[in-house]
Amino acid sequence: MIELEGLTKRYGEKVAVDHLTFSVRPGIVTGFLGPNGAGKSTTMRMMLGLDRPTAGAVRIDGMRYDQLKDPLKYIGALLDAKAMHGGRSAYHHLLCLAQSNGIDRRRVHEVLDTVGLTSVAKKKAKGFSLGMGQRLGIAGALLGDPRILMFDEPVNGLDPEGIHWIRNLMKALAAEGRTVFVSSHLMSEMALTADHLVVIGQGRLLADTSMADFIARNSRSYVRIRTPQREQLLDALHGAGITVVEAGAEVLEVDGEKSEQIGELAARHQIVLHELSPQRASLEEAFMRLTAESVEYHAHDGRPLGGPEPRQAWGPDWRKA
């Protein structure tokens, strides 16, 4: 169990983390989602006692991080794959961590085996690929057999096989009753692994909800219509009591799954349709809409992200995988 209470980090004038209050529960994977620069890594560093909060507090099983005796036995973290000395072998990297927390040497061999690095245990970490470094970092997180695990962007830069492995590992750890907290800037990734979602933008809490709720609330289905006879269609829809939203020139949108009804209505009134397509807003898009105002670095394509137009861009693929 991790509890954050009014956690705040300011760098001079700039607020990186702004009064975050939420808790991370055991037995499930909690996704920590936010655009780049939202304050996810800063929050995680404060959770580990690496950065000092300007205000607020973090409790790990009710205690401050620096009050934990042998913290690796409570909480294991992968912050970034390069947080190790490149000149040291994988074995010695893990051994020095184990010794500092009074963890048996045997455990080093066990976690090396778990992450599949036994054959390169004596090799220096600087020769490792990103994926191998990530695995070594995860081995370090698992070392103390902790009840809480924290991963910062664990799939970044991994090949598909590595991504698959990490997803399954996180689910397995949560199934064992552990607390699993994982950050990402990709909604699609979270949709596959997380049971619960904490979304932040510009350091502020935007959502703290179960994944199922988030999907139910945000994956709205609607019908997209294009017609040259806009006025006639609007009148016809109003006449049938159907609410319409105008989403740009010539484009109308109707909530719900009413494409048959609208098609028949148009036929009855002899209105020409250029498009009548059922749509489902993706989670990625819902996430972007949620964080749109808080995105710090916009790509300048003349339109803010999450605006009404690019609905189709992300597709509903997240459900299939």
Binding site: R45, L48, G49, L50, Y65, D66, L68, P71, L72, A77, L79, D80, K82, A83, M84, H85, G86, L97, S100, N101, G140
Partner: peptide
């Protein structure tokens, strides 16, 4: 200083917060 240049310092201080 190699703790800092390698990034190991974060791993080290997470293991030994005192």
């Amino acid at each position: 200083a190699n703790e800092y240049s390698s990034g190991m310092i974060r791993t080290s201080l997470a293991a030994v917060p005192r």
